[in-house]
């Protein structure tokens, strides 16, 4: 599903954010990417949905080399990927339902289908009663649930989360991780970049450790080194 082959990403100034990273994530896997800030977690996520292009090596998503995609093909890659960010990125002037519907409209989904999917997604994240609220009226945890609903509403094969609980208290964070695990159990491949070590340890999932841009350990769900 996702494969990094000897990927290096150097930004214009400074040292490499990623340095010769290789790993593979199979369909239906749930993978944590952990490491201190600046280890390259965000860069790794951005490379998957082609916000960034590797300086060296290549990133394969669904068997396709992401850096070789034509500009016009990028939107279609992204339609197969849902992304959740640390800062939620909800549009403040739209209601919760509109925020979710907006992404369906952006990919030109028929109106009737939009309604059906929005209520399904709100149901999934447990917020059907907040459909007409505005993001500012919700707690941080609720806002992140809306962001998860937005990421999954299209039923993408891949869900990426970049520090999804960075702004949340630990209890709320557990809820978000459980939600992502539930999405995973429905068939989506999930990659979560985080530094919430205690939760990662408690969840016993495959974990990739980054340090200074290098992959230092890749531990399978059972605890074995890969």
């Amino acid at each position: 599903m996702i494969e990094f082959v000897d990927v290096t990403k150097a930004y214009e100034q400074g040292s490499a954010a990623l340095d010769g990273v290789s790993f593979r994530v199979d369909k239906g896997e749930f993978v944590f990417v952990v490491g201190p800030s600046g280890a390259g977690k965000s860069t790794l996520v951005k490379l998957v949905y082609r916000e960034e292009i590797p300086s060296d090596g290549h990133v394969m998503v669904n068997g396709r080399n992401v850096s070789r995609l034509k500009r016009s093909a990028v939107p279609f890659l992204r339609r197969g990927i849902g992304v959740v960010f640390q800062d939620f990125r909800l549009l403040p002037r739209m209601t919760v339902a509109d925020n979710i519907a907006f992404v369906l409209e952006a990919v030109e989904t028929p109106v009737r289908e939009v309604k059906r999917r929005v209520s399904w997604a709100l149901e999934l994240v447990g917020l059907p009663h907040k459909a007409n609220s505005f993001p500012a009226q919700l707690s941080g945890g609720e806002q992140q649930r809306v962001a998860v609903a937005r990421a999954v509403v299209n039923s993408p094969a891949i869900i990426l989360a970049d520090e999804p609980t960075g702004n949340l208290d630990p209890d709320t964070a557990v809820g978000i991780f459980n939600l992502l695990a539930e999405v995973n159990s429905m068939g989506a491949t999930v990659v979560v970049a985080t530094h919430a070590h205690s939760i990662v340890n408690a969840m016993h999932r495959r974990t990739i450790f980054l340090e200074k841009g290098r992959l230092v350990r890749d531990v399978a769900a059972g605890g074995a080194l890969r």
Binding site: Y49, F76, R78, R79, G82, R89, L91, F102, V103, A106
Partner: peptide, 17 residues
């Protein structure tokens, strides 16, 4: 800008934006 960013992120085509 934020709206356009979200649109691009979820795979809206340039012509749609």
């Amino acid at each position: 800008g934020a709206e356009i960013g979200v649109m691009k992120m979820v795979g809206a085509t340039d012509s749609f934006v």
